[in-house]
């Protein structure tokens, strides 16, 4: 007999994505808070040239945000390719993206470079490896700011050392529904991990999605940081799985999942918040094998696609809120309609 996690993989039902970022600065420029626009432009040009020349010039492209439409920047943020800070920033800045969008180098954010590697499911080692490769490549642009004792020097002292932030995005609806999250967040804090909402710092929790990341960057090696995060997350995964296993035969839960699926498959207008909470339930149900006709990757894609700016951009224009809510419902019906058939 195969269980739900054997079909979907134990981690992908709960772990949406993994991300590793490295903060890097060059000695030849001041840190971003004291850079002139001219220096910012040079930094952007040099790093983009370095990356786009690599691997035959096919692999990376620059998305220059200096004069970009704010909606485009916001959409990149909703796709987790750039941070809210870079989206809202000023002056020459941008992001260098790999073709697969699994590597993004933000230029001119809080540090000269924020090298980020992303992947679906739990894949910390692969992400670390990919980020390190880009790091080696970008060192040819100039000498990195580094000290023996403090490691890589960063604009904010909180990132000194490895400059590494490893994070995993977990979908924890069962732990949330049963009131365990306060305890989980406290326990994570004691182990040295921060828990944030879906868009990182300062945002609230949407759709039962939680991002766990390391706080300390100095004193541990990159591998040690990643190992510790993996170990901590494993514990929370186990508990979520345990609770979900009990839910599978719970009539109340089945009813809620099917109602949420019904809502998404038939609504003619829906806000992003309502869509997110219904998607969260549907995703949980799908992971438990309740809704067999929809895949995790389809649902993960929807979680991003229903966000306001991404939706707006996909529709190629400026939709007002009412039009957006209608378009969102159309999109959800097109994917979720088959679930009810």
């Amino acid at each position: 007999m195969s269980t739900w996690y054997e079909k979907e993989g134990a981690k992908s039902g709960i772990v949406l994505s993994t991300r590793v970022r490295l903060a890097r600065n060059y000695t030849k420029y001041p840190f971003p808070n004291r850079m002139t626009d001219q220096q910012r432009q040079s930094l952007l040009d040099e790093t983009a040239a370095c990356m786009t020349a690599a691997a035959g010039g096919q692999e990376f492209t620059l998305r220059d945000l200096t004069k970009a439409d704010p909606a485009e920047a916001r959409s990149l943020m909703e796709q987790h390719l750039i941070s809210p800070e870079l989206a809202a920033g000023n002056g020459p800045r941008g992001v260098i993206l790999s073709r697969e969008e699994d590597l993004a180098v933000m230029v001119g954010e809080e540090d000269h470079l924020r090298i980020q590697a992303m992947g679906a499911g739990l894949c910390l080692d692969e992400c670390l490896k990919r980020a390190m490769q880009a790091d080696d490549l970008l060192e040819s642009v100039g000498s990195y700011a580094f000290s023996d004792r403090m490691g890589y020097l960063t604009q904010c002292p909180t990132n000194l050392g490895t400059g590494l932030r490893a994070s995993v995005m977990l979908h924890l609806p069962a732990l949330t529904a049963q009131g365990y999250m306060r305890g989980v967040i406290n326990a994570a804090g004691k182990m040295g991990f921060a828990v944030r909402g879906i868009y990182g710092e300062g945002s609230r929790f949407v759709g039962d999605l939680y991002q766990f990341s390391n706080q300390a960057t100095l004193g541990l090696s990159e591998e040690e940081i990643v190992r510790r995060l993996e170990k901590a997350v494993d514990g929370f995964l186990e508990k979520e799985e345990e609770l979900r296993a009990q839910l599978k035969n719970d009539d109340g839960f089945l009813d809620r999942v099917w109602r949420a699926a019904g809502l998404l498959a038939s609504a003619r207008s829906i806000s992003s918040e309502e869509a997110m909470s219904a998607l969260s339930l549907v995703r949980e149900g799908a992971a438990c094998g309740v809704l067999p006709n929809v895949t995790m990757s389809e649902l993960n894609r929807l979680l991003v696609a229903v966000q306001p700016a991404t939706l707006n951009l996909a529709e190629g224009g400026r939709l007002d809120e009412t039009q957006r809510d209608k378009k969102r419902a159309d999109l959800l019906r097109s994917v979720m309609g088959k679930v009810l058939r």
């Binding site: 390190m132 790091d135 080696d136 060192e139 000498s143 990195y144 580094f146 000290s147 023996d148 004792r149 403090m150 490691g151 890589y152 002292p157 909180t158 000194l160 050392g161 490895t162 590494l164 300390a216 960057t217 100095l218 004193g219 541990l220 090696s221 990159e222």
Partner: peptide
């Protein structure tokens, strides 16, 4: 922030 910790991670090629 970091206690008395010292860097034990990656060392850049040039520096």
């Amino acid at each position: 922030i970091h206690g008395r910790a010292e860097h034990t991670g990656k060392i850049p090629a040039t520096a």
